[in-house]
Write a protein that binds this DNA or RNA. Structure first.
Lengths: 205, 205, 205, 205
DNA sequence: ACCTAAGCGAGACGGTACGTCTCGTCTTGCG
DNA sequence: CGCAAGACGAGACGTACCGTCTCGCTTAGGT
C-alpha cells in the first residue's frame, strides 16, 4: 500500500516541498499521511486535527483537502496503509489458529500503536456516516479474511458444516474490538485462550 | 425515566427557571439532562455541544459547567439515566436466555435511541481518558449483570463448571457492541441465534 | 481616615458576621466599603468586581445589592468616604494658594491611592449615566470649594472683579484631572508652578 | 474616512467576505473598524464588545483577534482613524485662536460623536495599561499640535517668551477633556471664552 | 416568652462577553 | 496547475462577572 521508496518519517528542517507541476506531488501525499499517522500514534484521536497534520507535514491545508475530502477520509487512508501483521497461520487446530490470530492482533494494535489509529476510526465513524460506511466495509473485508480460518477448518472436518463462518468471524472481531475500545489490550493469555476456547468448542464437530 | 416519546418535551415559553437558593435546582439539572438526551437522539453525537444543550435547556452554560466538569461527564450521566429494559429472564435454557438478552438489547438500543447515546459515549471515550475509565467501569458493571445468566446455568449444571462466566459475558457484550458500532442493529434473528448458539454450544456440559 | 476602633484589615478566619436583627449591620457595610477600597487600591478598577468585593468582605452579594443599587453606587460611596486632605490655605497670594492646592491634590491622589479610586469613578462614569451624573455633581461641589480660593482673592482685590471664579476653578480641576488620567501625577513642581502661574497671571488685577 | 452619515452603512445581505489569500483582507479590516465605530457611536462604550463588533461586521471573532490583540487596540485604532477637523487657524489673536480651537473641538466631539469614542478610550485607559500608554502618547502628540498656536503667537511677540507652550497646550486640552468627561460639551460660548481669556491674559506680553 | 420581620452569608440561576481553538473554504504568488 | 502559506466566516470551548433569587440562620422589637 506504500510505494514511496525514500525517506519516511523525516518531517523537519528541509526547505519545504514545492509543486512539481500540474500533478499531484506524491511526496506531499506521503508527508501528509506520515504526519497524520504520527499524530494519531503520539497524541491519539484528540490531537488529530487537519490543522495539526498540515503543520507537521509542512503542507498547506488546501493540499490536504484537495486529496482527501475530509478528516474521515484521511483517517481511513492512514488506517488502510497499516500493514496487517496478523497471524492467520494454519496450525491444524482451529482453537490454536484463533488464539494466534487474537494474540497477534492484540500485539499489533498494542506495539505498533495502530490500535490508536483504529480506535480513532471507530470514534470518527460514530459521528460521520461516511466513516461509518467505510468502517463497516473495511470490517466486512477483514472479517472475510478471518472467516477463512473457519472455512479451512470446516473443510478438513474439524468444524461442523452447519456453522456460519461469517458469524464466527464476527464473534472474534467483536472480542478484539471491545478489548481495544475499553483499553484491555493487555489481556492475559489465559483469558484470551478461554474466550477462544468457548468459540472453538462451540463450533467443533 | 423517559420512555414515552411525547410527554414533557415542552421546552419553550415558560417564564424560565430561577435559582432556588444556595443549592442545586433539580429542575435545571433535569432540564439539562433532558435537553442533552434529546439532542443526542435527534442529531447524534455531532450535534451534541454544551452550547446547544444550554440553549435547548434554557440554561446558562456556567450552570452546566458547575455540575458537570466537561462534556464527557454530562454524556455519561445522560447514558446512565437510561434504565436498561434488557431481558435477563431465566427460561431454563442458557441459549434461549442469551438470545433474549441479545434481542432485547438490540431492541432497546434501536427503538429508544439509547444506542445513539451509547455510541456517542464510546466515541467520546476514544478521545478522553476520563470517559474511557468511566466507560470501562460501566461496561464492567453491565458485564457483571450478564454474567449471572451464565452463573445460574452453571449452578443447574447446564454449563460446565470450568467455564469463566466473565469471559462469556464479555463475548456477548462484544457481539452487541460491534453491531451497534457498525450500524448492524437490524441483524436478523437467524444470525443472532447462530451467534448465540456458538457460544452456548461452547459452554454446555 | 478610618475610624472604626477594632481590627481593621483583618479579613480572614473570623467566624463571619451575622445578621444583627431587622436592621442594617454596620459592620457589614464597613467591611464591604473597606474591601472595595482595598481592591481598587491594590488592583485598580480592573480588579473591582462585586464578586471580588463580596468575597473579600466575606459578605453575600445580595447584601451589597441591598444597600447599593449597583457597582457605580458602591464606587461612588467608596470615593466619597475619602476625606480630602487638600490644602485650601490662604497664603495671601492666589498663585501660592493655587500651587499648594494643586500640589496637595496630586500628593493625596498619589500617596493614598485615592487617585486610583477617582480614576475608576471617571471610567465608570463613561459607561453609566448615573455615575456620570454623580460625578458631575461631585465635581461641581469640589469646584465650589476650589472657587473660594478665587473668591477670597477677589475680595481682597488681588483678582479682577470680572473674573468668573467658577471658570478658574474649572481650569484648575481640569489640569488636575488630565494629569491623573494620563498618569502624570509625578509632574515636577516647576511645571505645576508654570501652569498655575498662567492662570494666576490671567486673573490678577 | 467616514464623514457622511448615510452612505455605506449597509451591513446585511451581501454574500459575505472571503479570504483573499494568505494576506490580510482590507475589506474585513475596514468592515470591522466601521462596525466598531458605529457601535461606539450608537450605543457608547457599554455596547462595544468584540462579540458585537464581529456580528455587525459579519466577521469571525478570530479575525478580529488576529489583527488587534485586544479590545483596547481596536478602540485605539478606531479613534485614530478619526480625522481631526479641529480649527487651528491663525487669526492673529491668540485668544481668538484658542477660542476657535476649543469651539471646534467641542463641536467635533459633539456632532460627529467622536467624543463618545474618545470617552471610551479614556475609560478603557483607566483599566488597561497598554491603553493608558497609548492614550498618553496620543495626547502628547495632539498637545504638540496645539502648542503651535502658542509658539507662533510667541514668535510674533503676542505671548511672553518665558511662557512654556507645552503647559498652555496642557491647560487647553485639560479644559476640553473635563468638559467631555463630565458631559458639558454644550458649554456656552461665553463660558468658553471666559476660560480661554484667563489663559490668554495669563500669557500675553 | 413568643412571633414576626428583616438582615445576613452563601451560593445557584440565566445571561453576556471574553479570548482561544479548529473546521473547511478561499486566494495569492512562486515554481 | 500544484504547492505552501495563511486569512477568512463560523461557531464551540471553558471562564469570569453581572444582577437576581431563595435558603436557613440570626436577632430586635412588638405583643
Amino acid at each position: 500500500m506504500r510505494f514511496s521508496m525514500t525517506d519516511e518519517i523525516a518531517t523537519e528542517d528541509e526547505p519545504a516541498r514545492r509543486s512539481i507541476g500540474a500533478k499531484r506531488n506524491p511526496d506531499s501525499a506521503e508527508a501528509i499521511l506520515e504526519a497524520a499517522e504520527e499524530l494519531l500514534r503520539d497524541k491519539g484521536y484528540a490531537g488529530f486535527s487537519i490543522e495539526a497534520v498540515a503543520k507537521r507535514a509542512r503542507a498547506g491545508k488546501p493540499t490536504i483537502y484537495r486529496w482527501w475530502p475530509n478528516k474521515t477520509a484521511l483517517l481511513l487512508e492512514v488506517y488502510q496503509r497499516q500493514k496487517g501483521q496478523v497471524d492467520y497461520s494454519d496450525t491444524g487446530s482451529i482453537e490454536e489458529d484463533m488464539f494466534r490470530f487474537m494474540k497477534s492482533l492484540f500485539h499489533q494494535w498494542r506495539e505498533t500503536q495502530t490500535g490508536e489509529i483504529f480506535r480513532s476510526l471507530v470514534a470518527e465513524a460514530q459521528q460521520d456516516d461516511a466513516a461509518l460506511k467505510a468502517l463497516a466495509h473495511y470490517a466486512g473485508t477483514r472479517r472475510g479474511r478471518t472467516r477463512q480460518i473457519v472455512e479451512r477448518a470446516q473443510k478438513r472436518g474439524e468444524v461442523r458444516a452447519d456453522v456460519m463462518p461469517e458469524v464466527v468471524a464476527d464473534l472474534l472481531a467483536a472480542y478484539a474490538w471491545i478489548h481495544l475500545l475499553t483499553d484491555r489490550l493487555y489481556e492475559s493469555d489465559e483469558t484470551i485462550r478461554a474466550a477462544v476456547a468457548v468459540i472453538a468448542n462451540g463450533i467443533k464437530s
